[in-house]
């Protein structure tokens, strides 16, 4: 039985409304998942909140992304967060490859480098080691620089295990950084991540 014109129009209108709602929600979810927003700055391969922005006054999209992927951060007054999922050549970190993270002590009250899996959680490993900080990283002879071995295979020193993860994300936390560090955070002051195997 053929539908009359009025009914056809109503069906088309209803479908258009449903499609518009689905498109709106779908594109919002996609935008949140991309983890790209106008509040972030790149410093080499590391990302951090922009100079004139903060986690509590960023744009709506940034606040939504932070709430999903980095819930309950502190403002820049207290902590500077930097994150990356790529090495210093810009390639995505492969959990099955070996990397060396080379850096120097940060002038902050507390700093750490933590590895996370694809969901942003700690990576289960036999040595129960998930991060290195100012106290437990083994420094080089100069007592200032360090090399952290990001690898699925056991290393003798500063081993940050990655086995079992599908993707790797690294986060640097700088609690109460000095003004000098805060004002001069640049590529040279951040660790280099080099693939070695």
């Amino acid at each position: 039985m053929a539908l009359n014109t009025k009914t056809q129009k109503r069906i088309i209108l209803s479908l258009s409304v449903i499609a518009a709602i689905a498109a709106g929600i779908g594109s919002a979810v996609y935008s949140i998942r991309t983890w790209k927003n106008s509040s972030q700055d790149n410093i080499g391969n590391w990302q951090t909140i922009g100079k004139d922005k903060d986690v509590n006054n960023a744009d709506l999209l940034s606040i939504a992304q932070i709430s999903v992927y980095a819930t309950y951060p502190l403002t820049k007054k207290e902590v500077i967060y930097l994150n990356t999922s790529t090495d210093s050549d810009g390639n995505v970190i492969d959990p099955k490859s070996d990397y060396v993270i080379s850096g120097k002590k940060f002038d902050a009250r507390y700093w750490s480098i933590t590895a996370y899996d694809q969901d942003g959680f700690l990576i289960k490993n036999p040595v129960e080691k998930y991060s290195y900080n100012f106290e437990d990283v083994k420094y080089e002879k100069d007592s200032t620089s360090y090399k952290i071995n990001l690898s699925a295979v056991k290393k003798d020193s500063n081993w940050l295990p990655t086995a079992g993860a599908q993707k790797i994300g690294l986060v640097i936390r700088l609690y109460q950084p000095s003004d000098e560090l805060r004002n001069n955070l640049n590529k040279e002051s951040l660790p280099i991540i080099q693939k070695v195997k």
């Binding site: 209108l13 498109a23 709106g24």
Partner: peptide, 29 residues
């Protein structure tokens, strides 16, 4: 007018979803 209204509706739901997400996360956690 229908076309513009449909696009506007999509834009409204885009921003509504982004705005409501943090509240949803807080409630869920």
């Amino acid at each position: 007018i229908y076309g513009v209204a449909v696009v506007l509706l999509a834009v409204v739901f885009y921003y509504l979803t982004i705005w409501v997400t943090p509240y949803y996360v807080q409630n869920k956690i």
